[in-house]
Write a protein that binds this DNA or RNA. Structure first.
Lengths: 235, 235
DNA sequence: TTTGTCTATATGTCTGACAAACTGACATCC
DNA sequence: GGATGTCAGTTTGTCAGACATATAGACAAA
């Protein structure tokens, strides 16, 4: 009934404005922003606030700052890929299935590529993710975090930032649903076994096997999702 | 051979330290960080630098700041820690190659799916896109718009909104580069022929052929990109 | 052409100060 | 007693002004 009101930081407002200007095309990638002092003046704020905004934008990958070169708008940034897609937050029923389909494609490609590129460090990381899930099971936790961690480690092994970012973002959007599938009794154990098998395939650089395994894994997830869907009816 | 040296911002060092402390488990999600003044003292830096670091961490979703509640480490952030820590921001150049790779994967998947799902309407649309490109050629236009149109129509034929959206935004980010490849003498004609072949495969619902053709098409594009790159050196 | 030097510029950093908002305790009124 | 003001302490948010430092560009010298 009542809208939650709260003060909005100046630095946030500045960052938001710049993000919007980028989306609307009034600021173009590759261009240079005015100097911090000029921005401060134009926004009617202090340089410190402008700098905080730029820090945020920088860590989002939208801008790049150089000692004397000013602040430039980056050409290729993950956020710009995602901002359009992530936009429909409502997740219609139809859109949700599109999302599931896109995720399956993405994950399959990721695993295939990862099985070619994974080095010792990646494999160690994945191993650790498996341990975390094992721990989740014995501690009786739901395991969604370790599930996400595993898939994130897979994506990282491709060494491709765009794919990694996409995986993270799409995986995050489906977090709730995945959590529900993991609640099914015994599912977490199964999941761990499937993950382990995928890991083995990766470790032996068997792309074809890895591909088959992740496909089976995702098919399993989808199956459970469908079952849950029939019972409850609504995401 | 020579390592690239450059000054590392204090705020970056602080942010990195905090990220690592999180990874090592010395800082735990849900905990509260010391106050900004205390942090400044402990790191031997000013509060302004600490605040810039916190701004970055906040926009990564690692911490949450409240007016009097101090700064708390967010619970659900494991995935973000990982990718950001292990793979420091890539430069535009590297990220561009990631983008090219991601696009190729995406387009291949799209064409494969489209060849299964394209109906009469989709095919007509694609046909029209081909005509537009033919017109571009005879009018001596650069053809980038009709190129985009063609790929957009392909994506639409998958009936998957997520894939369509991804294709659009990635394609859009690469627009300038694609435009440059089309400027190569005779390239637009080749491009049209390749598009035509893909269309034929789609029309006959030959997924395997379509896949091979789009792969060849994208390989050709990449080849030209590389050549242009060697000549000019800088996007 | 390369190298050295200088200067202007923009970011990076620090200091000290005040404003604003939240917390908790205490006082006040019905 | 319980709801409502009031106040002080704490912490983040914001500001202004200063200096340090790295970079680019111009220009001179070898």
């Amino acid at each position: 009934m009542f809208q939650n009101v709260k003060s909005i930081r100046i630095s946030d407002q500045i960052a938001t404005q710049i993000r919007h200007l980028l989306l609307e095309g009034k600021l173009k990638p590759g261009e240079r922003l005015p100097t911090e002092s000029e921005l401060a003046e134009k926004f009617g704020a202090s340089r410190a606030s402008v700098r905080e905004a730029l820090s945020a934008l920088e860590s989002e990958g939208l801008v790049e700052r150089r000692k004397n070169g000013g602040t430039i708008l980056r050409r290729f940034s993950l956020n710009r890929v995602l901002s359009d897609v992530e936009f429909p937050r409502k997740l219609d029923r139809e859109l949700f299935f599109d999302l599931v389909e896109a995720r399956e494609m993405l994950e399959i490609q990721i695993v295939e590529l990862a099985s070619k590129r994974a080095d010792r460090i990646d494999l160690n990381r994945i191993e650790r993710a498996l341990e975390v899930m094992q721990e989740d099971i014995s501690m009786n936790r739901n395991g969604i975090e370790s599930d996400i961690l595993f898939h994130q480690c897979l994506a990282a092994a491709t060494k491709n930032q765009i794919l990694t970012g996409l995986s993270r973002s799409i995986g995050h959007m489906m977090q709730k649903t995945r959590a529900r599938t993991l609640e099914v009794p015994g599912r977490l154990d199964e999941c761990l076994q499937e993950h382990r098998a995928i890991y083995e395939a990766l470790a032996s650089h068997d792309a074809e096997l890895a591909r088959r395994l992740i496909k089976a894994h995702l098919a399993q997830v989808r199956l459970i999702m469908d079952e849950l869907d029939l019972e409850k009816g609504e995401p």
